[in-house]
Each structure stands twice: as C-alpha cells, then as structure tokens.
Design a protein around this nucleic acid. Structure first.
Lengths: 172, 172
DNA sequence: GTAAACATGTAACAGGTTACATGATTGT
DNA sequence: ACAATCATGTAACCTGTTACATGTTTAC
C-alpha cells in the first residue's frame, strides 16, 4: 500500500492536485515509485473518503486541490516509524543471469557486456540530472539528493559487477 | 511474465515437479524472483497447455514431473536474447527517504542507522550462505555464485550509502 | 480556430498474495 | 497411530497497467 503513503508524503510538502502529483511522480519519484495517472486519481479519491486528505480548493477545469489532514500526517508518520519497509527483491536482470547457460558463450558475454554498457549510460543520465537539478526547492531537495546519490552508487556497482561477471563467465 | 520464464529456466537444468520447483524458488531464487505455491502450480498448467512443457512422468501422491519441450527451450532462448529485461524500480526503502522531513532529526537518523545495520546483517547472512554453498552442482552453480556476488556488493553499497546519508542529514 | 496543456474519471485485464481445501506416503 | 512431508488445486482479493472516455482553458 505504498502508493497511499507516497501520495501522503508528497502532500506533506504542499497541497496539490492529481495532475500536479502525476507530474511529481513522473519526475522526482519516477525511479523510486512510479505510478500511473489512473492509479493516482483512484487512490486520491479513496484517501479523501478515508479522511486522510481533504479537498482544500476547487479551481477551473474541475481541478481539485488536496491537502493532508491531521489524520493523514499521523498515518504518514506511523508508516515511517512503526512499519518495516519491505525490500522488493524481484530482479529480471538477475533472473536472466541464472539461465545464461542455455546460451552460447558469445551470447552470455554479450548479455553481461550490454548490462555494463547500460549501467554506464544510466550513470551518465543520472549525473546529468544531478547537475541540472535546482538544489534549493522545498523539503524534498535534501532527500532528492540523497536518493540520487543512491542511484549513482547503484548503477556504478552494477556496472562493476557486470564487468567482473563477464570475466568469470569467460573462464567457465 | 517472468514467472513463466523462471519456470522454463529451472526446467532447462532438469525435469521437476511443482513441488520441486517450489523449493527451488524458496532457496535459489528466493532473493531474485520469489513465487508462491499457488502461482507455480497455476502457471505450470498453463505452460503445459501452451506446449512449452510436457508431463514427462507421473509418480506417487499425484506427483507430475514436467520437462521442457523443444518449443519451451526456444521460448526461453528467445526471452533471453530477443527481449529486454525491465528493471523493476520500486523501492519502498528509498521512497521513505523522500519523506523523512516529517520526522524529528533523531527519528531520521534512526531510520538511516537502522538501514545500515540491516544491510550489515544481510551481508553476514549472504556471506554465510556463500560459505555453506556446494559450488559444484549443476548448471546453476556458476550463475548462482555470480548472483550471490551481486547481493554481497549490493548490500555493501547500501550500507555505505546509508552511513553517508546519515551524515548528510545530520548536517541539514 | 485549433493545438497543446490542463484535468479527471472508469473499465478490462494481468500478475501476485493469502487462504482454503484435499489427500497420499514415509518415518518413528 | 500419528506427525511430518509430499503433492496438487482453487477462490477471493489486492495492486498495477493499458486503454478508453470526456471536457476545459490557454496560447498562438
């Protein structure tokens, strides 16, 4: 049920509409907790029904601005402090590694080389994002920086691992 | 649809029953692509219907042993070489980082310290698994080793990052 | 006027989880 | 005899994705 909490979290910074939130998901949370337009609108309605959000303003074009209620903030805090994050484990990339033996040595090597290359590209993309960020807007800034650093370290680790694995498999 | 391919992959090594596969998921693939008993049995039936598997043997207690068909092997190879793995991005751990600002400095610090501690424990657990493994059984051995190395590097990276992040947040 | 952006909502489907339900065989 | 393990199957529910559907406002 983390989508709920992602919405509560974003609204803890400032009130926003479904449309605003959609864009926040597509930018700041895209690589952490993606969500679709459909999901966001459905969940906002439920959250308001449950009293965790309130419609604080209605604008033109049917725009509804949601605000976090006291109950919503309490729920957000409860989630952060009293529940354990479950680490999602599923990795299709790693799953494939298990079955590389059905391929030729060249194909195996190709898979890992490609993985290293992709990781290197992702590093560059994150690096560019890092450099282009305006590191001074709202509460999400410090945390955004920390999350980006995680991404940079992660793709670096994966590139190095893929390079190492390509060597290992070459010997086999 | 990776569960399909995980099953095909495991059966590329040797024929097995649903029950056998369930245990393979709970051991070798537990940290890569978990699956429930319910899911496995349902999918095996579908795969046999689709001709990618065949029931190669029926044993006592209703045991059905499945084998990969030529078509199944072709599908596995196709998946490995012609389709792109989609990297699952969702990370509840990272999502929480974004919203730490609603907590007190002590609570924030506690979250990251705990994350570092958990990562260190996971390192030890993987290390023990690594040391206890019999590195000489079947085709999955080399790949299993490579996957474990990934796990070791990943939790190390996460511990170091959490330690670094705790410092960053302390300054803010 | 018309295209782009704003803005919301719903329906069908796919994948995964939990729980229920049943029965056979082996080891002590 | 009894418990543990082997062995399979189904139903209800939850989450997430894709596609459909509609209408308004702004900028050129």
């Amino acid at each position: 049920m983390s989508l709920r909490h992602a919405l509560l979290g974003l609204l803890s910074d400032r009130p926003a509409s479904g449309y605003d939130l959609l864009k926040l998901f597509d930018t700041s949370l895209a690589n952490v907790w993606p969500a679709t337009q459909s999901q966001i609108y459905t969940e906002l309605t439920k959250l308001a029904d449950d009293g965790l959000l309130s419609v604080s303003n209605e604008g033109s074009r049917g725009r509804k601005e949601y605000s976090l209620t006291d109950e919503g903030l309490a729920e957000l805090r409860h989630w952060l402090t009293e529940t354990k994050p479950k680490q999602s484990v599923r990795s299709e990339i790693l799953l494939r590694v298990f079955f590389l033996s059905v391929l030729t040595p060249e194909q195996r090597r190709g898979y890992l080389d490609n993985l290293a290359a992709i990781s290197a590209e992702q590093y560059d993309a994150l690096r560019r994002l890092y450099d282009s960020m305006d590191w001074d807007e709202g509460n999400l800034s410090v945390q955004g920086k920390i999350a980006l650093e995680y991404g940079l370290r992660f793709v670096t680790m994966r590139r190095e691992w893929a390079e190492w694995a390509a060597e290992q498999i070459n010997q086999g």
